[in-house]
Structures are given as C-alpha cells and as structure tokens.
Design a protein around this nucleic acid. Structure first.
Lengths: 219, 219
DNA sequence: AGCTATCTGTGAATTGATTCACAGTGTGAA
DNA sequence: TTCACACTGTGAATCAATTCACAGATAGCT
C-alpha cells in the first residue's frame, strides 16, 4: 500500500482509486496493443489487473468509454480515453525535492518510464549537489525553488526529504504553487484543502508486510 | 498512495489500513516519548497523524488500549501495545529480490530505520552481484532462494524485479514459503488466498499525482 | 465531599467503494 | 433474415471504513 495510502482532496470528479486503476489499465493496454491485440473484454482486462469485470466496466464507464456486446472494448480507443483523462494529453512537469539516496533512486526509476510526466528540476539544500545533472534533471539550490517552480509552471512535486523537514518544505512548496505531492517522507502532511498528497510511506509499508508475514493464513 | 494500494487477504483480525495507522502512531509516539511526554489525548495524536480523534480512539480500541477521561492515554503503554500487535515483539526477517538500482535504494533506505524488521538476504540472477554485501545484506544467486529462505525462516519479501519477471518470481517465492510481499514492480500479482501483497506502485502513484496537479482546486 | 468540564468508549449513522444481477443489445452463425 | 448467445451498462444491494454523537467516567477544583 501505497497505497500508501493516499489522501483525497476536493477531487473534482474521479476518485483516487479509480485514477490508480486507470493508470494500471493504460499500462496493460499499451502492452496488449503492442502485441497486436485490438479488442478486449472486461473480464480479460480484469484478470490482468487482478480485479473484477464489474469493476473494470464501471471504471471505463466513469471515463465515458463504451464497448460493444460480443466484441468488448476497442483497445486503442480505451488508451485514447485514459490518456485524455490521466495526463490530459499534456506533459506534466514535476520537481524533486531532496536529492539524497532516495531522491536519486526516484529520478533513476522514473527516467524513461512515463514520457507524459517529466522531472524537470530537483532541489536540495546541500551546496555540493547544486548544479549537478542527475538523469537529465538539474539540481538547484533550495533557495531558488520559488523562482524555478513558477518559471517552469511546475505544479507537482516528489518529496524525498528527511521526515522532520517534510512539513516545512511542503508548506513552502504549497506557497510556491505546488498542487500535488508524491510524499516519500514517513509523515503525514498538513496541506490546505484542494492540495493532493499521495503518501508512499515505505516505513509503514514494511510494517504492514511484516505484520502479515506472521499471520498464519486463515481460509 | 501507494498505495498503492494494498490488497487484503484472509486478514485474521485487523484490517490493513488500521495496521498502517498503527505503524504511524508508533513512530509518532516514539518521538513524543523521546521528548519526555507521558500522556496524550486522542485529538493530539489525531492532529499529528492528520486524522480524527474518533479514528484514533477506534484504532486504539482495536488493539485493546484504553485511556482515561481527562488524562488521555499513557504513551509508553500505547507503544507497548502497538509493539505487541505489529512486530509481535519478534524481529522479522525479510528478503529482497532484485538487486538493481531500486533494490539497492530499498536496502539503503531501510538500513537503521526499523530495528524490528531486518533484510537478511538478497537475491539476484546477475552473477556479478552475487556474494556482494550491500548495507550489511548478502546477495545470493537466485538459484539458492529456496534453501536460504527456508534456512532463515524468511516469510516476507520485497520484490524489486522488472515488471515482466514479477509474477514468475512471486510464484516461486510463494512456493518457497513467502507469506507477505512488498511489491515494487508496477504490476498486480496473482497470489493464493492467505498471501498478502502490499503494492508500492510508483508508476501509478506518479500518474495519480500528475492527474491531481491539473485539477484546479475545487472547494 | 461535591461539582464540573473534558475526556474516553462505543453503538448507530453515514459515507464511499465494490459487487451483484439482470435488462438491453449487437454480433456472428445458420 | 432471423436467432441465440455472450457481452455491456447500470440501478440497486452489499460491504467496509469512517464519523457522529452521546452516555459514562474521572481528575482537578473549590
């Protein structure tokens, strides 16, 4: 869990869980399309997504897709629809804050994965890291955050700073116009209504996994 | 969210979300105890956890804690109670599978964080990585997985292999006795009932964050 | 010793997400 | 051209999680 687990916001229309599943569907559909398939049934997509046919149909309904009986859904059409909703067909710029081990791993991970989302700037207080370019992303001094975020029109940020700094950094980023956080710090953030936070709390996740490792599988 | 979002299992008693919050409470409580505080009210803990007093009280009730009116809860007692539930006061051994960039970052991240959970073995198919020791964790050839998991009594694993290998690796680990997965691969795993999977799907998480970055804060 | 304000513990209500179940429909077969 | 089947689309039911709301308790004050 990432799931953690995310916090919702004044979610305009589509709930977080649905958005998450749409992201997964898109990945699966791109694979299927690449392997030449054109049509798919809800039960097939459900099997791939480890979900249920009803869930898949409802999700697709939510984004205004429709299939046809006996034929299922047109894969290209679905991808198109998900693209419209998810990345709004625009490339999203994201900033990384905190260029420690974890921050660098995050940059490395996302490089060449989702072309529609790009890390265009990183920030750190450590002067030694400033001006370096990591996976094509330039590191700036934290002092320049407001400038650069505004200049680049960045509205999303990944937070990879130490836990005790997370809240104050988040406050500052909110003032600088960030609307959406990917929070890797193992604390919950206080943010104003309308700001989205997705917690990737690896600490909590490991505790959960450890807990269930001890449960002797009932059922 | 990471949550992703986790999948439940034949959860014996306590739901995943509750376990996640207990982990968070424990961290907060340890901090508070370190700063000399002895008692706390549900509304204070709720503020720290960005939750509600009712939620906190219900969670604490779930693990059999009780406070007293006007005094609140005894912090030491709460920590004790959470420890009993969460790590069962035993150290949990965890394996890492996949020693790429992400795998190494995971090891680095968890080193010296949760003493009650320890990465005792890592596995990779790349012969060059075998026998190295990374953050105190030895890397073994994938071929030795069954042996070592059994020998060390490991029941939990973090999966950091490429997406297309994840399912087959998971199948194999289930046969080798793994009961609980921390899955970093951006796919959902098919596992038998009674096996727990916590998805840390960074791909999905970034898509979610990008989505909400575009939503003009309603409310 | 009694009183009061403020907290806990929890049954019940609510909210939100998922699943059911089935009417409607387009497709491919004959 | 017609038929029957296997699908979709969706209102309603269910299920799980969270929140409300209040009765009961107790610490501290007088």
């Amino acid at each position: 869990m990432t799931t953690t687990t995310p916090r919702h916001t004044a979610a305009p229309t589509i709930p977080v869980n649905t958005i998450g599943r749409l992201s997964l569907y898109r990945r699966l559909l791109l694979d299927l399309a690449a392997s030449g398939l054109r049509q798919i049934y809800s039960h097939q997509l459900a099997a791939l997504a480890v979900s249920t046919p009803a869930q898949v149909r409802r999700d697709l309904m939510t984004i205004g897709c429709s299939g046809s009986p006996r034929r299922g859904y047109a894969i290209e059409e679905l991808i198109e629809a998900v693209n419209t909703v998810l990345a709004r067909s625009v490339e999203t710029s994201v900033a990384l804050v905190g260029v420690g081990n974890l921050g660098r791993a995050i940059l490395a991970y996302y490089t060449n994965r989702q072309p529609w989302v790009r890390f265009v700037a990183a920030f750190d207080t450590d002067e030694d890291k400033v001006n370096r370019i990591i996976n094509g992303c330039r590191v700036y001094a934290m002092g320049r955050a407001e400038d650069i975020l505004a200049q680049e029109g960045i509205r999303a940020a990944a937070l990879a700073v130490p836990a005790r700094e997370a809240q104050s950094v988040a406050d500052r980023l909110v003032l600088a116009g960030i609307k959406s956080f990917l929070n890797f710090a193992p604390v919950r953030l206080h943010v104003p209504t309308g700001i989205f936070v997705d917690d990737m709390d690896m600490t909590t996740a490991l505790d959960r996994v450890a807990y269930y490792a001890h449960q002797h599988g009932t059922t």
